[in-house]
């Protein structure tokens, strides 16, 4: 329990659909078994259709998200355009590897749609930046085992946006209900070519 990844708790998942992607997180912030806040989102937007989910040690979630806010703003100033998900994924990877021997205790997830090709893109990382490219879904956080089970059971290829929303929501909600350190509601983003829908889900309050 003294693993830095499991002090504050939290869960995050991303999924691919037909010409769309979804990313969702829970809202709990805890200190071991004690819940401190039930409004601590773990997904951060970086440009029009690039999203980053961060689970792990809450202080590093905040630090790393702010670090990338800085880096992405600098990118935007230099390039005069938004960063794409693939480029951002490589930025995340190299930034995390900079701290190879004293890592940020986070498990990031990136989701987005490539502006040029219109293709959905998701990937996950370990805490030192090894990228896990996936065609289906990426999970992270203290409920990752549970999320693997629900996602593997519920996900299917080429889901339409509304069906993808239902799938990712059910996968997350049911997974966090079997994890004591995650839950207390959720944020779900459905990302389409030129539309992003953010929904707030009420989950079990225990």
């Amino acid at each position: 329990m003294s693993s830095p990844f499991a002090i504050n708790g939290g869960a995050c998942v991303a999924m691919v659909g037909k010409d769309c992607v979804a990313i969702a997180c829970d809202l709990r912030l805890g200190l071991q078994a004690l819940t401190v806040s039930n409004d601590f989102p773990k997904i951060f937007p970086f440009g029009s259709s690039t999203y980053l989910g961060l689970t792990g040690l809450a202080t590093d979630v905040a630090t790393v998200s702010e670090l990338f806010r800085f880096k992405v703003n600098m990118y935007r100033l230099r390039e005069e355009r938004d960063i794409g998900p693939q480029t951002f994924a490589n930025l995340v990877s190299s930034s995390l590897y900079e701290r190879r021997f004293g890592p940020w205790f986070v498990s990031p997830v990136v989701a987005g749609i490539n502006e040029k090709t219109g293709k959905p893109f998701i990937c996950g990382f370990d805490s030192i930046g090894c990228i896990d490219f996936a065609k289906d879904f990426i999970v992270s956080g203290t409920a990752s085992d549970q999320l693997f089970g629900t996602c593997e059971g519920l996900w299917e290829p080429d889901l339409e946006p509304e069906d993808l929303f239902e799938t990712i929501s059910q996968a997350l909600l049911n997974a966090v209900d079997r994890d004591a350190l995650s839950g207390w509601g959720a944020h779900v983003y459905i990302i389409e070519k030129d539309k992003v829908t953010k929904r707030l889900l009420k989950g079990r309050q225990d």
């Binding site: 085992d145 549970q146 693997f148 089970g149 629900t150 593997e152 059971g153 519920l154 059910q170 909600l173 049911n174 997974a175 209900d177 079997r178 989950g203």
Partner: peptide
């Protein structure tokens, strides 16, 4: 070994949790 993977799926599909 895979109880933590299977159980939340069962909650959803058998006991219709969160539905």
């Amino acid at each position: 070994a895979a109880a933590s993977l299977i159980m939340p799926f069962l909650d959803n599909q058998v006991n219709l949790k969160n539905q």
